[in-house]
Nucleic acid binder design. Structure first.
Length: 560
RNA sequence: GCCCCCGUAGCUCAGUGGAUAGAGCACUGGCCUCCGGAGCCAGAAGCGAAGGUUCGAUUCCUUCCGGGGGUACCA
């Protein structure tokens, strides 16, 4: 549980009050166990501390809660402290706290909900890292959107973040990729393991244009490496473009080939050998990953002397950790077998198991007319990320991916997503933002003078719909902190939907720009005061919606 | 065989050990003389099964049932 007191002064205040009360009661002053009740009838905040310490204190939870409630001296920010159920202590915030919230949101602007970077650790988030032997398919979009949003969440939670892509740009697959291009270029037949994608012929043409025909001179085996290298460079550009289409930009692209060239792999193997974690068997060098939870030892150097990809993975891990305090790997479920060996490698490299965090996401199952479509680069049939984006749009695609738990396999039927796009939850949220913008525009056009938020009488915001909106708005800092810690993007999307919902309900029930020329002066003055309070309320709501969408990297439109 | 993920409303999915388990879609019926109806309100409908831990379990543990994925001196 992240420390909520860091991001919310009201919580900090309550926490201190609970701790002080505990001390006065002669009980250990521990975590005040503050949480947000689901039901607004239970107040704005609740503490379960009485339930938690009852046993140790040897007193009934309900009795403890009563004593605690009595001890909690009246704070100006709190209207009431109530005991409910088996021993919950519920706090009801006062108008003062609500007014402070609106002013704080507007004063902090885009910073509301975010924590300053001071003291935050440096986190490296590696994601996508698809082999550069073809364009990204739609499934990669899930990792792109999710990794990017997790990175944004971590930034919002106060960490320095590096978004990183690992490029497997050397080895057998690249050679095969190069050979496939040459074969296609010459009209030679392809083998089963060659690259059959429909992007291959065009790539051959492009490479001739870019590098001249000389690149292709020679036997297939002689030119495969060079063609492969050129093709990889080209695919990397294409992949970067595709990611750009989804609004994702990487800070660092690490080339596996560079690790080889710089001797990082040899150095890593030497380190592992020197630290006694390796063993020679049958002429190959193994890393004893079974000592650290893996189910079999892994080969670092083959019997013919060539290092394995795993050796490169170790070198890469060492490289990344030298640049960051904490490394997150976002991998697809098809790589879950890598978890144990990577964790073991972290131990063998002396990096600290906890500093290497591996997140496994379930795959995207693409459906077309209800039938599963295989997404394979070599087999050829695939839907590329850019094709998909052309159909549904980046915001819709991003939001769709971010909305779901990583543990959930996504069944995605593009036709359905595109069809439902008008009913898509992302529009529900964006519409709320656009609606606020529209009201603010109206206010301006009508010459409405909102005054200043300092002068506005925010204590007028007592309607249940207004209270619900305030309550929802106040949650953003906690939602961001929780979602970042859990690496759970769907918590933020769901929150955005909830916030949008409370706004839509508010909008349906409360009129912001209210005036009645027929009314007497006193009534009209009341209406203006109410309009001003609501004006600042929705201005703040707009900011919170924009901040939530901003972390998700989804647009917050002024009009739709 | 071993390992990982999932099983919550008709469908797609949220649910961080707390109080009466929530959305969207679909269905039924309502709501604009007035700030955007891409909206609001109401209705019906659910935790795969059994044990255990706990003051409290949809959540943690075990077993079973059902579905998906992974298992290499591959890359």
């Amino acid at each position: 549980m992240p420390d909520l007191t860091l991001s919310d002064p009201t919580v900090a205040l309550l926490a201190t009050a609970v701790r002080d009360a505990l001390t006065r009661m002669g009980l250990p002053s521990e975590d005040p166990a503050l949480e947000r009740p689901k039901d607004p009838d239970h107040g704005d905040w609740a503490s379960t501390i009485a339930l938690r310490v009852a046993k140790a204190a040897g007193r009934a939870p309900r009795e403890l809660a009563d004593a605690l409630a009595t001890e909690l001296a009246a704070l100006p920010e709190v209207d009431a402290v109530e005991v409910a159920g088996p021993g919950f202590v519920n706090f009801r915030l006062s108008d003062l706290a609500h007014a402070a919230l609106v002013r704080r949101i507007l004063a902090q602007g885009p910073g509301f909900g975010r924590r300053s970077a001071d003291g935050g650790s440096h986190v490296n988030v590696e994601f996508v890292s698809a082999n550069p032997t073809g364009p990204l398919h739609l499934g990669a979009g899930r990792w792109a959107a999710t990794g990017d949003a997790i990175a944004a969440l971590l930034e919002a939670a106060g960490h320095r973040v590096t978004r990183e892509y690992y490029v497997n740009d050397v080895g057998e697959q690249i050679r095969r990729f190069g050979a496939s291009i040459v074969r296609v270029d010459r009209g030679l037949p392809l083998g089963e393991d060659d690259y059959h994608g429909d992007y291959v012929p065009g790539l051959a043409v492009e490479l001739r244009e870019r590098h001249g025909d000389g690149l292709f001179d020679g036997e297939v085996d002689e030119v495969a490496d060079a063609v492969g290298a050129a093709a990889v460079a080209r695919m990397r550009e294409r992949i970067a473009q595709q990611l750009e289409g989804l609004g994702v930009r990487f800070d660092v692209w690490t080339s596996e080939g560079r690790l080889h060239d710089e001797g990082a792999i040899e150095a890593t193997i030497e380190q592992l050998r020197a630290s006694g974690h390796t063993e020679e068997r049958d002429g190959a060098l193994f890393l004893r990953t079974t000592d650290h939870g893996d189910d079999k030892d892994r080969v670092l150097v083959r019997s013919d002397g060539r290092p394995t990809y795993f050796a490169a993975d170790c070198a890469y891990m060492r490289d990344k950790r030298s640049r960051a305090d904490h490394c997150i790997y976002l991998l697809g479920a098809d790589h879950h077998g890598y978890v144990a060996r990577l964790k073991a490698a972290a131990v063998c490299l002396g990096l600290g198991v906890d500093s290497v965090e591996i997140r496994i996401g379930q795959l995207v199952n693409l459906l077309r007319d209800g039938e599963s479509v295989r997404l394979s680069k070599r087999a050829g049939e695939m839907i590329t990320l850019d094709e998909a984006l052309a159909e549904v749009g980046a915001d819709v695609a991003r939001y769709h991916f971010l909305r779901q738990n990583l543990d959930t396999t996504i069944d995605l039927d593009l036709a359905v997503v595109a069809e439902q796009s008008m009913e898509n939850p992302v529009y529900y949220v964006q519409y709320a933002h656009a609606r606020v913008a529209s009201v603010l525009r109206q206010a301006d056009e009508r010459g409405f003078d909102p005054g200043t938020v300092e002068d506005a009488d925010l204590a007028l915001l007592t309607h249940p719909a207004e209270r619900a909106l305030l309550r929802s708005m106040s949650s953003l800092p906690h939602v961001i902190a929780d979602a970042a810690e859990a690496r759970a993007t769907q918590r933020l999307t769901r929150y955005a939907e909830e916030l949008a919902g409370t706004f839509h309900r508010f909008y349906a029930e409360c009129r912001v720009l209210d005036d009645d020329p027929e009314a007497d002066d006193e009534t009209r003055a009341r209406m203006v005061a109410s309009s001003r309070a609501r004006y600042w309320l929705i201005s703040a709501a707009k900011q919170v919606l924009a901040n939530a969408l901003g972390v998700l990297r989804v647009g917050a439109p002024e009009r739709m």
